[in-house]
């Protein structure tokens, strides 16, 4: 029998897998990103439907409870994702600044600004 928390994870994960698939089809994300997110959500579904699997992660990481191992793994995973997002945003900001500056400087051919030119 499926417990309420398993149902919740299953629903959310399926919606997110569908979203990842749609984003891939639209060309918003590349194949690598689509596979990464689909694998992540699929793993969540498997773990929620087969909780004994988490015992393995507990044994591998040497934690007392399976939940501790999942928390550590989750924290690590989201730290990595956050770092990549931060790097990506910094890069995008730099590129945006360059583009905005290029657009601004493209209007440099206006002679009206010169004062006292003929004095």
């Amino acid at each position: 029998m499926i417990l309420p928390y398993q149902l919740l994870i299953l629903c959310v994960s399926l919606i997110m897998m569908y979203s990842a698939f749609i984003y891939y089809k639209r060309g918003d994300i590349d194949l690598f990103s689509a596979v990464f997110w689909l694998t992540l959500w699929l793993a969540l579904i498997i773990i929620s439907l087969a909780p004994p699997l988490t015992l393995l992660s507990s044994k591998l990481l040497g934690t007392l409870r399976p939940l501790d191992a999942l928390t550590i793994l989750g924290f690590l995973l989201f730290s990595i994702i956050m770092f990549h997002m931060y790097s990506w945003l910094s890069k995008m900001k730099k590129q945006l600044n360059e583009v905005v500056r290029e657009i601004a400087l493209s209007k440099l051919s206006n002679p009206k600004h010169l004062r006292n030119k003929n004095k």
Binding site: V100, R101, K107, K112
Partner: peptide, 9 residues
């Protein structure tokens, strides 16, 4: 009487 440049954002 000024050269006005604009950052779009």
């Amino acid at each position: 009487e000024a050269l006005v440049l604009r950052h779009v954002v």
